[in-house]
């Protein structure tokens, strides 16, 4: 009875999503092996080996895994699957791309985006977070993706797990990496930031979004998020979108500025510890879940808040 967890990393650093998924994996009660697949990933494997609760780290160091393409990565996971009863990955873009492919190849129905585990039952949100299902599987193996924001990351440093190289599985060469355009990461990553400042459509323009949201975020050392309305209007890039169809966040402090609080958005922030809403419409639904609300003009409140912090 062993669990295999696919580590999330960007080729340089191990993502905190791995430590969060480890916390979920621990609830299955079996030893956990972490698979680090990539090219030149020795230091990432080393980082994974220090996480608490890891029994062993497997490293598949091969050019085929450099960009986490689903076709070779799923073949690798399937080649390792006979030794495991459960295969887990975080519900990141990579995890969501790779794991259903693994599940189908193993003839297993995947349990997606799990937010709680109790023995052999799993909770997962459906209908944009409006209904929480408790499910159990009759498959001989489990394939699970985990919503990281629902689990606290495990600690590190208690011990160092052994690191073992594994052979690459054949690459079917069905797809080829061309390029990646990633935002310069001068701010903390949205899904693991301690503070998130998000702007909505009320900001009115890309210029105002950048002028009001970014300085406040930078003063707080916060990540920047946006509502779907703000993203659709072009005020903020796609990958800043917080909500059911964007990123799920669970910071200590979430500041929603000029966001009305559509269900879709609320589903992505409800695990936050403290929510602050600033909106000129006192009837805005966001106030129903905000711990602290300020009714007023974001164009004067946000600069004032930044200056007084």
């Amino acid at each position: 009875m062993t669990t295999l967890l696919l580590a999330e990393h960007d080729g340089k650093l191990l993502s905190e999503q791995t430590a969060r998924t480890l916390a979920a994996a621990a609830k299955l009660g079996a030893p956990v092996h972490v698979l680090v697949a990539g090219a030149g990933v020795a230091s990432i494997a080393e980082a994974a080996s220090r996480l608490d609760g890891v029994a062993k780290v497997l490293v598949a160091d091969d050019a085929a895994y450099a960009h986490q393409l689903a076709e070779p990565l799923s073949a690798l996971l399937v080649s390792l699957a006979p030794n495991y009863d459960a295969l887990l990955a975080p519900s990141t873009a990579n995890g969501k791309s790779v794991m259903p492919r693994v599940a189908a190849l193993l003839d297993v129905m995947q349990i997606s985006d799990v937010i709680a585990i109790d023995g052999t039952t799993f909770q997962r949100p459906t209908y944009a977070g409006n209904a929480i299902e408790t499910v159990t599987s009759s498959d001989p193996k489990l394939v699970v993706t985990v919503r990281g924001s629902a689990f606290k990351p495990v600690g590190e440093g208690a011990a160092s797990a052994p690191v073992e190289a594994v052979a690459a599985a054949g690459d079917p060469v069905l797809s080829r990496f061309i390029k990646e355009e990633l935002d310069a990461a001068e701010r903390p990553e949205l899904t693991s930031a301690r503070i998130v400042v998000s702007g909505g459509r009320a900001l009115g323009s890309k210029e105002k979004f950048e002028e009001l949201i970014l300085p406040l975020a930078d003063k707080l050392g916060a990540a920047v998020g946006a509502s779907r309305a703000a993203v659709d209007a072009g005020y903020a890039p796609n990958d800043w979108q917080v909500g059911q169809t964007g990123k799920m966040v669970a910071p200590d402090l979430y500041i929603a500025a000029g966001i009305s609080g559509a269900i879709q958005h609320v589903a992505g922030i409800s695990d936050s510890r403290v929510i602050v809403a600033i909106n000129k419409d006192e009837e805005a639904p966001i106030f129903q879940l905000a711990d602290y609300g300020l009714v007023g003009d974001i164009f004067t409140i946000l600069p004032e808040l930044k200056d007084k912090l």
């Binding site: 297993v108 129905m109 349990i111 039952t121 949100p125 459906t126 977070g129 409006n130 209904a131 929480i132 299902e133 408790t134 499910v135 159990t136 599987s137 009759s138 498959d139 409800s270 929510i275 602050v276 006192e282 106030f287 129903q288 879940l289 905000a290 711990d291 602290y292 609300g293 300020l294 009714v295 409140i301 004032e304 808040l305 007084k308 912090l309």
Partner: peptide, 27 residues
């Protein structure tokens, strides 16, 4: 089906908090 849904519940609701009068009070 391979999965059995044991139950379906509404998500836990966050209680609404308080409305504050000023930025100073918020900080």
């Amino acid at each position: 089906p391979r999965l059995t849904v044991l139950k379906t519940e509404a998500p836990k609701k966050r209680g609404g908090g308080v409305k504050l009068a000023s930025v100073d009070e918020l900080i």
